[in-house]
Amino acid sequence: MKEKIKSLKNEIELELNSVKNLKDLNEIKNKYLSKKGPVSELSNGLRDLSIDDKKVYGKLITDFKNDINNQFNILKDKFETEELNKKLENEKIDISMPGVNIGTGSPSFVEKVIDDASDFFISLGYDIYEGPEIELDKYNFEMLNLPKDHPARDAQDTYYLKDEDLLLRSQTSPVQVRVMLNGKGETPIRMICPGKVYRREDIDATHEQEFTQIEGLVIDKNISLSDLKGTFDAFVKHTFGENTEARFRPSYYPFTEPSVEMDMSCIYCDGSGCSMCKPKGWITISGGGMVHPNVLRMCGYDPDKWQGFAFGMAAERIAMLKYNMPDMRSMHENDLRETINFDRKEVK
């Protein structure tokens, strides 16, 4: 019996050594391991043996079967892996071909600036308001200390819509007037109001008839011009980088007193002067000051108890400076070759 097993083992192993593929392997398996094959016949030979021999040879046969099965499985695995690898090899693609063009969703330049400024001011507890673009002269001018015959009105050429009462707002300050009137002289105010404004003027690289203002207003009991400077300083650092500095210069606006021009240090040169900065080393991007007592009074806040600051800037100007755009008119051209690049997060 031992010899039988041994010679069968040799015979099978000889065949397995030369097998080349899964199909041949299966054939060999069928030949030896089928129900009527030589391996099963070995078990049939046990019937004639004594109980003790049955035990001894039974174990020998079982071990032999396991061994053979094991060898078959190892080879089967090997051939299957080889075949899969071959299949994958054939499925190889050119990864350098273009991917699917999933649409970009870019914001407009102005929207990007407004979003960024809104995030900044919201983080300081400011509320963001909007208001009508067709406004009353009363809110756009009169209650901002610009009575009918005020010379400063000449500077803001305005589109009037009906008589001298109804106009296209020339600034977003009327939104502030509305919020103040709503506050009834009792509620502290911390707000910005971004929105479109209209001026009746000639268009060039830095002037548009329609542009976007971001104006801010803080009214409380103890707000100072230094607070405006600190806030503005934080804003230019947020928008243009940590190294940017704020500077104030005296100015004049009818709605603020004192009034200031708000400059940031030039982001294009080291302060020694370049084509972008005027006065040398500085770029004026905003105007503001302490809310004029007449404005407070007209809007229902007692100037002996309340004080605060207001400021305003053009979103287009911020965008032009931040993204180095030479011409304001490109904001309205909507050339997608330019705008889709702005479907991108900011670098901070």
């Binding site: 300081l124 409380d220 400077k229 806030t231 200031v260």
Partner: peptide
């Protein structure tokens, strides 16, 4: 008085106000 004091000499301070959530209208 401010212009004689010099606006360039003003400090950068932040308004001291109660914390409050900034809201979108």
């Amino acid at each position: 008085i401010g212009r004689l004091y010099g606006y360039h000499n003003l400090k950068n301070t932040m308004p001291v106000l109660p914390t409050k959530e900034g809201k979108l209208e």
